[in-house]
Nucleic acid binder design. Structure first.
Lengths: 232, 232
DNA sequence: ATTGATTTACATCTTTAGATTGAGAAAACA
DNA sequence: TGTTTTCTCAATCTAAAGATGTAAATCAAT
């Protein structure tokens, strides 16, 4: 068992009052943690979090009144030093992914054994991120699938490779929202020259205007920035 | 038809010949898997993968000749039904993240106990993704940090919220590279109306032209709608 | 030494984009 | 009910963008 300076306080948020009582009892009887509060309302939960800064919040994400994920985001924005464990009825990969993305430190199913929940609480309070093996697997499947398309997209002929280095410079400035004059000024060349480059870029990228050129650039790894287009 | 089970074949790629022998011996003695081949060269490894389609490849990523991650990407592009377990000397979060991103099914440190390696092999061959607890924690920290900026960026006033729903539709079509005529046609309104909307969008987003509007939209989470599939 | 690609530059022309003003109709709101 | 917001459309104007052709200087490679 781990030792803490003081007993960690846990806030429970679950719209099901029975379930709430069950978890409270479980934690009271089987662990050494304190219950900072319990509520069936996400909004009240957020206020309680503000007030008590609990070490951990156990949050049900299947609430009709308010989306649990949204509640998590609001709490995260407060920048309290509070960890959040998601309790959910669904082992949906997308739900797990989104919960972890917005900062949840763990995700446990309601159908899982209570020992699983306690273990997750221990791990999270010890500073780790905890996903049960099955859910972790689901997460990574989803994670890798979401990058699969990107990879295959970069497999197909990337028209950006046909650009000369000067054209790349011009395109970069285009992707920063510059007009002809701005680009000419930054590259110390005439505006007509920029027009020539831009027209050549259009030909090579097979687009009709600068907006499409910029979109093509961004969608094909120009600047190698990691863009999460997971929702699409 | 029943799939007949046979011993899974493992391909080892590690530039350190001694280490290679050690792992081979470990797998031969301690497990029931076959060694499909061993090589100290990433390029030869890729060819062996093409030839034998092993169930698993254990890949060292710390090779001077060729970047292990690059080798993994090349193998992944082949779309063999081959799983890849990364063996690395570094528990660097960025390295772990990139390895998982490009499709590695696991990541184990060389300093870890051999039992850890065997367990990882078992899990991966069983169809799971396996990261040792400590590395999993590192991965999620990195993962969540990489989304933290996005979240904090959307914390500051997002001008997109001032757009009316119609303006959002217009902006969406702008981010798809449409010109006035295209947008007018798709929304069944006149071109002049589109111009009005676009000009209002410019005012609200405080930009001067469509390219800047599109860039603002993309950089501020436009299109990331929250699909909530929660029903009691 | 010649070829080919790149970078630079200009003129001309057509089209599109953007700014501004005004205004009617419908829907939302108080 | 009146008021405000939103959505719609138009005319007009200026500025910017884009298409096309031509061409000179540079430089790498054959």
């Amino acid at each position: 068992m781990r030792e803490f300076k003081r007993k960690a306080r846990i806030l429970l948020i679950d719209d099901n009052a029975d379930h709430l009582r069950g978890i409270k009892e479980l934690i009271t009887l089987e662990t050494n943690y304190d219950i900072a509060g319990t509520t069936t309302s996400a909004n009240i939960g957020i206020n309680l979090a503000k007030k008590y800064h609990p070490e951990l919040i156990i949050m049900d994400v299947n609430m009709p009144e308010k989306d649990g994920l949204q509640a998590i985001q609001e709490i995260e924005k407060l920048n309290l030093d509070t960890k959040i464990l998601v309790l959910s009825g669904y082992d949906d990969a997308d739900l797990i992914f989104r919960a972890m993305k917005i900062g949840a430190k763990g995700y446990v199913l309601k159908t899982m054994a209570s020992a699983q929940l306690i273990y997750a609480i221990d791990e999270i309070l010890a500073g780790k991120v905890y996903l049960p093996s099955a859910l972790s697997s689901r997460f990574f499947d989803y994670f890798q699938r979401s990058f699969k398309e990107e990879a295959s997209a970069s497999t197909e002929e990337n028209l950006l490779t046909y650009l000369t280095s000067r054209e790349e410079e011009v395109l970069e400035l285009l992707t920063q929202g510059n007009n002809y004059k701005g680009i000419a000024g930054k590259l110390f060349i005439s505006e007509t020259t920029v027009k020539t480059h831009v027209n050549n870029i259009f030909q090579k990228l097979q687009v009709n205007d600068r907006t499409q050129a910029v979109l093509y650039a961004l969608n094909n790894g120009f600047g190698k920035r990691i863009r999460s287009k997971i929702s699409a």
